[in-house]
Design a protein around this nucleic acid. Structure first.
Lengths: 170, 170
DNA sequence: CCCAGATCGTCAGTATACTGTCAATCAACA
DNA sequence: TGTTGATTGACAGTATACTGACGATCTGGG
């Protein structure tokens, strides 16, 4: 039996590749999110940041970046934008001058309540083309894969570890 | 029976949401790709562009953006970088002064041949944590989902339509 | 107490990714 | 033929996303 010839160099091979499908699905997911939430002028990342700050009031930027799996360098500008919209407040930590603690403002908490239905519509729309059973299967496999691949991308801390010193876990 | 209370506003709900899993998996996929291919200084998008130009020599930028599902505005800078590395050539189209046709250079074709094994290692690594049967299931569902959601994001043309006037299809 | 190492937020630099706009050009119809 | 409408590539503006570096600060060992 002759050895298998090298894979042909063709764009069709790309279409079936995991990397291409993940990139394309991410594009589609963002597009659907923005469409459903366009009345709120919030990006998916800004939404995740608001939710995380709501769940962990007084969190600092580094821990926040771990909780939402978001690069620390970029997070600064995300927080700035949320601050400019008056959704988030930063207060210096009394016991550590390096740290700035994050809190939702009243507006931030309010917009979070209002946007939730739109976000849920968006999440549902992403999976809508699939049969219900297939949605469950896909989400189960994606959860597994993200979890097992967690250390493959440079998120400095696992969410649970990040929260150890926040009085919320451990 | 009382109606279901509203979903709690918690970061844990985000972790199970399709949008979060797709974003996170895309991060991981890029990270793995860059790690396996770091000797070549090519991004996933640059790689896809090279493959597509190789498959369709003389394609123009607008059609290329459809073929790799990549925004036309950003594609200009991607091509510039590929040109700067001497992997891609642009020639004005004789019959239409607006259009610039894209071709691989010798270097471009060479690096494509060399990088393929690294790309295949990367693609394999993305799915490695899953059992083989689950990998197939996941890729099947992702293909379906991307295909059925295709019109949800602003890619102007389906790949096949984009190629109609290229003498390669239809 | 002092200093080496770690951590925090920030910044510079690069590369996607999208919206919207523009001039140049082409195609097609009246 | 002349003009309207569409297309092409380019650009400006915004928002992720990552690497690497920096000063300010904290912490732990000696």
């Amino acid at each position: 039996m002759p050895s298998k010839p090298p894979a042909p160099i063709t764009i069709d091979a790309v279409y079936a590749a995991p990397g291409y499908l993940f990139r394309r699905m991410q594009q589609i997911a963002v597009s659907i999110f923005m469409e459903e939430c366009k009345a709120f002028d919030l990006t998916p990342v800004q939404y995740a940041a608001l939710i995380a700050i709501h769940t962990h009031p007084g969190i600092d930027a580094t821990r926040l970046s771990a909780v939402i799996a978001f690069d620390r360098s970029t997070l600064g500008s995300v927080i700035e934008r949320l601050q400019a919209k008056d959704y988030v407040e930063r207060k210096p930590a009394p016991e550590d001058k390096r740290i700035k603690l994050l809190y939702l403002t009243k507006s931030g908490a309010a917009i979070l309540r209002e946007i939730i239905p739109a976000v849920e519509r968006a999440q549902a729309r992403m999976l809508e083309p699939l049969k219900p059973a297939d949605r469950k299967t896909l989400m189960g496999l994606m959860s597994q894969l993200v979890d097992l691949n967690n250390e493959a991308s440079r998120v400095p801390l696992r969410a649970e570890d990040a929260l150890e010193h926040l009085g919320k876990a451990g």
